[in-house]
Design a protein around this nucleic acid. Structure first.
Lengths: 346, 346
DNA sequence: ATCCCCTGTGGGAACGATGTCACAGCACGC
DNA sequence: GCGTGCTGTGACATCGTTCCCACAGGGGAT
């Protein structure tokens, strides 16, 4: 029964498993078995099928397969702002680890907006992703995704510790070390620039700051704690206001790279000398910090690995959906550079 | 026929259109019409369906829909290296535009490897994406995807101009302007650091450099043209070698932000003063260039918009698959800063 | 009264893959 | 001659959705 059914050369249609079956003269089932390796297939038949598939340029349709098998191999990644090197590097790490584990990444930049985040989350549910990695802007994403039984890993900050997995860094110890470094140099008026103190990250960095001050017997001056948005311009403005005031601090601890940039620009604008007039230390070691002069002392987090670790955690969660939730804490380390020195003599 | 079929409370299963149909007491077809808005549906029925869907938390399965309709609303994005702010910003722009147009992004960082690129391309074919945006590392991706009838937009550099769409910047004019700026200041020994001259981008920047020299009646010194890889360390090494040589150039034009960083570090290492001893101009205005002191003159490309424009182009291509291929060229502009000045007096 | 059109609904066949099941051969031992 | 076990294959239902088609009921024109 070798009916000569000439391929209609309809270049528009993609080859399906049926085309391969016809080309190889077997049934669709056999093609499936030969290609996936599950089930019997005589070696000569298998070879014939493989050749036919290669000739037609057949690539199995992931959609159809996923639909049938009800298990997806793609994960969602929701980051706040790819233009911030922190999130970009996080995404890069996630991408690499995902590739190694055979996952496909569906990525969205949520622009620090809770609305965009929810929208993206719904799209991920619609796509039936196997899991989601998110640097959350609100508690909504995690609860929403959890209600759809989609595993979530919160990265950098956590809104739902205990009920969802998390991968974060040692914020408290990092902030404490950075602040203690300044205290050790003799500073007593140490300003803190921070984005929020509600999210875990900001809260813990704030606590670390307080701990170091208290360990140095320094009373907290609320006027020196600035809660600025995620915005270089705003941070710069606030820094200018503070630094040209009457009794300005002798050191500033900026709790993330954006705020550090704002403070840095403010310092340049006011013509202050670093570290002679003022010391600066940042949380999160952005690339520019080792390029400017003087170079900036920073708490370095392995951001690439943060993204990779999140994918690893998610993969484990997908394997074992019922296991207890885990929060992984990655180490940070203080990189001492030129921007920190003893305060100016009184 | 109102058979009381109690929902089995199987919290594990996601609600399907069938569940919504049963809850609303209508057929699957009606639910589909009511939710998508295609076809008739009485207003009271529509409302009943909507309420049932909301109550169940029903989210349509994109996989199943795509399978049936044979049209996908997701696009692939293949970038070389998310840790490079250029690609990160490109991806950010693509993400934003994709969201606005209702596309989902499937992203992969190809780590500048042709192999990872091919692998990712195959995954995108398997996913049946509607189109792909790529900063190609080899001509293979575009031809491969084209053979599967998947629209491609090549961004930043082009391997297949004429047969696939492209979105690039005015490399030649940008490089010419940058070099001419140096010539205009009186420089005659102007070094060029460039990654490749085979790809369109490198080739055109090289041409722009040559044109400006020739317009200034300057003979090209091949010893001043360094073809370095995409690697800060290598670029720095090469720059150190050149700049501590006997008759070093009085100015350097670095053709991308990575090479510029290498040159910048080399200059710092050697203790040269910018711009007194040497002038520096870069192609691609990375964030650090406006933060260091002196600030760096650079050819600025609107990278965010480059990514957004690529998505727009891809969208148009998806709408009109048979139209002639288009290459969009975005403008660049020279941002003059502190790193360029007349050469030191002889 | 007949015909036709319009509104509104449900049945059922796809889409492309997988995997269960039945069964055809064949060899072997009784 | 018959059961048993094994290899290898194909038919068919299924995943969740869309959409073509059939058809019911009602109103208006002839």
């Amino acid at each position: 029964m070798t009916i000569e059914r000439r391929t209609p050369l309809s270049r528009s249609r993609r080859p399906t498993i049926k085309d391969v079956a016809e080309a190889a003269g077997v049934s669709r089932s056999t093609v499936s078995r030969a290609l996936t390796g599950r089930g019997y297939a005589a070696s000569d038949v298998r070879e014939r099928v493989l050749r036919a598939a290669a000739e037609l340029g057949y690539v199995p349709d992931v959609m159809a397969r996923t639909l049938k098998q009800q298990v997806s191999r793609s994960v969602g990644v929701l980051v706040s702002d790819l233009r911030n090197p922190f999130y970009a590097e996080l995404a890069a790490g996630a991408s690499r680890e995902a590739r190694e584990r055979g996952y496909t990444l569906v990525l969205a930049d949520t622009s620090l907006s809770a609305e965009a985040e929810s929208e993206a989350a719904e799209a991920l549910v619609a796509l039936r992703v196997a899991g989601v990695i998110v640097t959350p802007n609100s508690p909504a994403v995690s609860t929403y995704l959890a209600s759809h039984h989609i595993p979530v890993v919160e990265v950098d900050r956590q809104f739902a510790p205990g009920s969802t997995d998390g991968v974060v860094v040692g914020n408290r110890v990092g902030a404490r070390t950075a602040t203690a470094h300044l205290v050790g140099l003799g500073h007593r008026r140490i300003a803190l620039f921070i984005d929020e103190t509600d999210w875990t990250t900001g809260y813990e960095r704030y606590q670390g700051y307080l701990e170091a001050l208290s360990a140095g017997d320094i009373k907290v001056d609320p006027g020196l704690v600035v809660s600025s948005g995620w915005d270089v311009a705003d941070s710069r403005r606030r820094a200018v206001d503070m630094l040209r005031g009457p009794d300005r601090p002798t050191a500033v601890f900026a709790a993330n790279n954006v705020l550090a940039e704002g403070v840095w620009r403010a310092i340049g604008e006011l013509g202050l000398r670093v570290p002679a007039d003022i010391s600066l230390v940042a949380f999160d070691d952005a690339p520019w910090m080792s390029m400017v002069s003087p170079t900036v002392t920073a708490v370095s987090q392995d951001t690439f690995n943060l993204g990779a670790a999140a994918v690893r955690r998610l993969d484990e969660r997908i394997e074992m959906p019922e296991a207890d939730s885990v929060t992984t804490v990655l180490n940070v380390r203080l990189v001492t550079r030129e921007s920190t020195a003893p305060p100016p003599a009184l």
